[in-house]
Design a protein around this nucleic acid. Sequence first.
DNA 1: TCGGTTGGTCGCGTATCGCGTACAATTGAT
DNA 2: ATCAATTGTACGCGATACGCGACCAACCGA
Lengths: 122, 122
Amino acid sequence: MISKRLSELRKRKKWSLQYTADQLGIAKSTYAGYESGYRQPSLEAIKEIASLFETSVDYLLGMVDNSSFELEHKDKMKSLELTEKDLLAKVRLTIDGKSLSQDELNQFIAFIRVKREVEAKR
Amino acid sequence: MISKRLSELRKRKKWSLQYTADQLGIAKSTYAGYESGYRQPSLEAIKEIASLFETSVDYLLGMVDNSSFELEHKDKMKSLELTEKDLLAKVRLTIDGKSLSQDELNQFIAFIRVKREVEAKR
DNA sequence: TCGGTTGGTCGCGTATCGCGTACAATTGAT
DNA sequence: ATCAATTGTACGCGATACGCGACCAACCGA
């Protein structure tokens, strides 16, 4: 699993084994061993490999199918509509570490709606 | 890093070393070595550990700070601290499709804090 | 008090990791 | 076409360190 994903990622970047090994600071034969399945990288090595290829260790190990580290870890929460039904069942909103109740959220929504109404008329 | 996170996860589940090792099908001393930092798990082992603890390999290795596999890989049970600095730079909060301003968010936070203060005295 | 459990370390045997080396296949320049 | 350089692949060797059983001190419940 890991060998397949490694060679796929490397070829996608059009890197040679030597160049890749140099980037990682290891011998070419060592990295080649990873791709051929002849060797397995150490924990330290696989972390650096994941960084170099901008992916996650979980992807290299076949724990997930998503290769994009960015997509996986960052871009998840891009926009949250607060009026969405049952939002609090999906997302826990906190203030000072304490969960927001649906009541409090409703009050806030009402408050903002009124405020915007007023401002629109000026 | 990995040892700290392992013992934290195990203690949270109130499992003993022996029980945990049994679940993983390895010797107690082996797993104990992981937590004490005396040994490092193999790639195969760390995958099984991540599965057992329902977390990600990346978390165990300290690649990410997010311990929740669900949060990391799917899109469930996120937690958002509204007082977090520069929150709106990372997450767009909307009401009726319109973005919330930092001012509006601040007003809301202040409102909730006062409300809680009052309720605490009753 | 004492049997049982817990977290932790150590020594041993051996699996395997990383490197250098070697070699066929491929590429590129003349 | 020829030859040198590069690339992908495989192997042997030495050293690392992994996994296990054995062991130990501390702690607990009966």
